[in-house]
Computed example of a mutant assay.
Amino acid sequence: MSVAGRMVRAMNSLHLAPWSEKGLQILHRQNTPEMTEHLGGPETEQAIADRHARYLRLDGGEMLIVHLGEVAIGSVGYWEREWNGEDVYETGYGILPEFGGNGYAVEALRLAADRAAARGDRRYLHAFPHVEHAASNAVCRKAGFDLVGTVSFEYPKGTWSESNDWRLDLTARGA
């Protein structure tokens, strides 16, 4: 089978599962200097436990585990927020480095956007990657988001940085 054929087969087995206790392992694996470089750096054990607990009880959105076949390869999610006077969803995603560069983040983000669109209660889904995070900005572009502009964005809490504001019109996705 060709490389392209294997990739199509692998992409077809990419799916999202609800956040569960398995997600705690993903958070630990994502808590590296490489994966958190544009997110304020690695978190403490307590911060990871707190994040996991928030994800388990998330209301007004969902955190999801990204699976390639039976293997958990990352996370994606969306949650309610107010942005520029409008009720929107914000999204975040992270694919483990050993699975990077294969389009999995793009596909996971599209699947999460479909789930957000199916709720029918928000028009836009926004992502706010740091302006210097080339890979994350490429994911947004490839997933069909439009670049709205550059903004000062707070993440983590108390830390402001220059981020790109990417926006996806959920009403254009159909339900």
Rank of each mutant, 00 (worst) to 15 (best):
V3S: 15
R6C: 03
M7C: 10
V8M: 10
H15K: 15
H15P: 14
H15D: 12
L16T: 11
A17F: 02
S20V: 05
K22P: 03
I26R: 00
I26N: 08
R29K: 14
P33H: 06
G40V: 00
P42V: 06
T44S: 06
E45R: 01
I48R: 04
D50P: 05
H52C: 08
H52D: 04
Y55E: 08
L56M: 14
R57W: 07
L58H: 15
E62P: 05
E62K: 12
H67G: 04
H67S: 10
A72N: 02
W79V: 00
W79S: 00
W79F: 00
W83M: 04
N84T: 03
G85Q: 08
V88T: 14
E90S: 13
G92I: 03
Y93M: 08
G101T: 09
Y104S: 05
V106L: 02
A108H: 12
A112L: 06
A113H: 10
A113W: 13
A117R: 07
G120T: 07
G120L: 11
D121T: 03
D121I: 04
R122E: 04
R123P: 11
R123S: 01
Y124A: 10
L125D: 09
L125G: 11
N137E: 01
V139L: 01
C140K: 01
D146N: 03
V148W: 05
G149M: 08
T150V: 14
V151F: 12
G158K: 13
W160K: 13
W160C: 10
N164H: 15
D165A: 14
L168S: 05
